[in-house]
């Protein structure tokens, strides 16, 4: 599985994502600059956390025009995997690859803490190593993670099982509608989430619950890849 992590000016979780994928899957990972014009050889593209373009105007608003994002759109259309974490989730909603938008936290403050998530759908390429309803601990670190979608969109997300992670009841850290922490597109190959699975890959970092997200992707990729090969 060939993986790419996109670097925008202002990305700062790019190296963390690279280290996490290497450590959990032992697959090759490249850091690719936002000006990259051909990412067709990558099976997984990560849009990492950080403050792309300083988050000026709106978080993720400027990054969506980077040449590399055209390649992300192609990957999504091809059915390859796209994972947007934190700022990456914001970029994916801004660019229309995922529905909804991320508003400022209802506390109006940046929040960095361990959060308890509930796995809402384990039938995705990103979550098959989790059980549905399982509670996992993954940290958040964001000022604009308050997910919003209108009623109609929300109904649609629910109907298609697109809600993948929810914050545990009573522990919604930012005011997200329906406690949403992460969603996939209808096809299920693009995941955006505010919590940072790449920060939860070792108990000495407080949790290792994020590992299975990466191992899930690898396994699904392995199956499809094997199918193509044979």
């Amino acid at each position: 599985m060939k993986c790419a992590v996109i670097q925008f000016p202002g990305s700062n979780c790019d190296v963390d994502a690279l280290k996490a994928i290497e450590e959990t899957t032992s697959q090759p990972v490249d850091l690719v600059w936002h000006t990259a014009r051909d990412l067709s050889s990558y099976d997984l593209i990560v849009v990492p956390g950080g403050f792309s373009y300083g988050d000026y105007l709106r978080a993720g608003a400027i990054a969506k025009f980077a040449p590399a994002m055209k390649e992300v759109e192609k990957a999504a259309a091809d059915g390859r995997f796209v994972l947007g974490i934190c700022n990456g989730f914001q970029v994916l909603t801004e660019s229309g690859l995922l529905e909804g938008a991320l508003r400022r936290n209802d506390s109006l403050q940046f929040r960095c803490e361990m959060t308890e998530l509930v796995v809402a759908n384990h039938h995705t390429a990103f979550t098959r190593h989790y059980a549905v309803g399982e509670r996992i601990v993954i940290p958040i670190a964001h000022g604009e993670g308050n997910y919003y979608a209108d009623e109609q969109t929300l109904k649609k997300l629910k109907k298609h099982g697109q809600i993948v992670f929810r914050y545990a009841k009573e522990h919604n850290p930012n005011g997200s509608v329906d406690d949403i922490a992460g969603i996939v597109n209808e096809r299920g190959n693009v995941l955006g989430m505010m919590p940072h699975p790449e920060r939860a890959i070792h108990s000495r970092l407080g949790s290792a619950d994020g590992r299975r997200l990466f191992t899930s992707i690898l396994e699904v990729w392995g199956e499809t890849h094997a199918a193509i090969q044979s």
């Binding site: 979780c13 940046f110 929040r111 960095c112 940072h196 970092l205």
Partner: peptide
């Protein structure tokens, strides 16, 4: 205070704020 700071980026923070000393790998 420190929940408003990103204390975990770089994924080397073994002891977060609030203890006697912070520890970074």
């Amino acid at each position: 205070v420190y929940d408003q700071y990103d204390s975990m980026v770089r994924t080397e923070t073994f002891v977060r704020p609030g203890s006697d000393a912070a520890v970074v790998g």
